[in-house]
């Protein structure tokens, strides 16, 4: 049995619009990467698969494993000008 982890999720800019909320708190009982959590959160939504991710205000790879108390932020790539 995996220890229960408290995760604070933040959505930024157009990701916030897609998700319909600015943030949410989750209790997670399994080891998850930040991108696995993204796939879970967006499973029933038609959202772009590209997303950038920061944990505790630091940019991370998609395979970064979440830890208890982390704040994970999802934000869109931006390349226009």
């Amino acid at each position: 049995m995996h220890k229960l982890m408290k995760i604070h999720v933040k959505y930024f800019a157009s990701v916030r619009d897609l998700m319909g909320t600015e943030s949410k708190d989750l209790d997670i009982d399994k080891s998850l990467s930040v991108y696995e959590l993204w796939k879970d959160l967006t499973a029933k939504l038609n959202v772009p698969k590209d997303v950038l991710i920061a944990v505790n205000h630091k940019y991370v790879d998609k395979d970064f494993k979440l830890n208890d108390g982390d704040e994970v932020a999802y934000f869109p790539p931006v390349t226009g000008g």
């Binding site: 930024f12 916030r16 619009d17 205000h57 630091k58 940019y59």
Partner: peptide, 15 residues
């Protein structure tokens, strides 16, 4: 990161 719709600014570190 700049979100002008909600006038929200956030800075994240990159390694």
């Amino acid at each position: 990161l700049v979100d002008v719709k909600n006038i929200n600014f956030r800075t994240i570190r990159i390694s």
